[in-house]
């Protein structure tokens, strides 16, 4: 297997170039996967797990494209100028590239808020008749919750500095609603990104597809919120499976950690689809 690093020009309204890593299997790809990363600190903390998974997939004969979204990682643009819609456009560009390159129907593999992006991209693609498969890692059930978690970083910083004030998250929301950007944990969050994120959901799209949702932790089943979402996808035609594997929440732990059980479960998920 080989690793190609390159910049992919995007012809979307936003334009620019996205940094991509393509993990190419030694022989013709049996399947292909597009990694959709979470944002800000969660993206950084999960780099190692994303790389380990991508390498494992490639060793199994599955091609993987890792793309840094607009304003993230090594891609062009500033995080503060990124919007949710640009990111969905980027995911669609990555999907098209993968399909042309491998000839296979892509899996969208999302982590945390990346699952929200993957779901939205899947809905958009369904309108064009393409039903991509979905692999979710520890999905956040709603964009509203994802935004809340991110804004908390600011109030938590104030808490540690001893200057916590009641309702500071509400005040941040008001500023975003008024079209202002705010700075949280070293990231400038634009009003456009916040509003897109807040409206994002895991809502289903019609179509025959596979959807696997894996979480890590000590529980035995996906959270009730995710189970409700999976039931909707099932009605819409998806073959769903979900589960919880033992392992650390590597996207948020203080140290960089690994969750080998999650990699094993995901390999199995994609391998089953290939042999089916």
């Amino acid at each position: 297997m080989t690793l190609e690093a390159f910049f992919l020009p995007v012809g979307t309204p936003r334009g620019g170039r996205r940094y991509c890593l393509f993990h190419k299997p030694a022989s013709a790809a049996r399947a292909c996967v597009l990694y959709v990363h979470p944002f800000a600190e969660e993206m950084n903390k999960s780099r190692r797990m994303a790389a380990l998974m991508a390498r494992q997939f490639a060793a199994d004969g599955v091609a993987v494209l890792q793309m840094d979204l607009h304003g993230c990682g090594d891609s062009s643009g500033d995080f503060g100028d990124a919007s949710w819609h640009d990111w969905v456009d980027d995911v669609l560009v990555g999907c098209t590239w993968l399909r042309e390159r491998t000839g296979a129907r892509p899996w969208l593999w999302g982590l945390r808020s990346g699952c929200l992006l993957a779901a939205e991209a899947a809905r958009r693609l369904s309108h064009t008749g393409l039903h991509v498969d979905l692999l979710w890692w520890a999905p956040i059930a709603s964009g509203k919750a994802a935004l809340q978690h991110f804004l908390r970083l600011k109030s938590a910083g104030e808490l540690l500095a001893g200057s916590a004030s009641r309702g500071s998250v509400d005040a941040l929301r008001e500023r975003l609603a008024a079209g202002e950007s705010i700075e949280v944990g070293g990231y400038r969050l634009s009003s456009a990104l916040a509003s897109g994120l807040e409206q994002a959901s895991l809502a289903s799209a019609a179509g025959d597809r596979r959807l696997a949702s894996w979480d890590v932790g000590s529980g035995h089943a996906a959270s009730p919120a995710v189970q409700r979402v999976l039931a909707q996808w099932q009605i819409a035609g998806a073959q769903c499976r979900s589960g919880v594997v033992e392992g650390p929440a590597f996207w948020q732990t203080t140290e960089v950690e690994e969750a080998p059980n999650l990699i094993a479960a995901s390999r199995e998920t994609v391998a089953e689809a290939v042999t089916a």
């Binding site: 970083l153 910083g157 948020q252 732990t253």
Partner: peptide, 16 residues
């Protein structure tokens, strides 16, 4: 280890 990111992670994990 208890920095602002960790406080947020703790709150989120406690909620879940």
């Amino acid at each position: 280890e208890l920095d602002s990111m960790a406080v947020v992670s703790l709150l989120t994990t406690l909620e879940e």
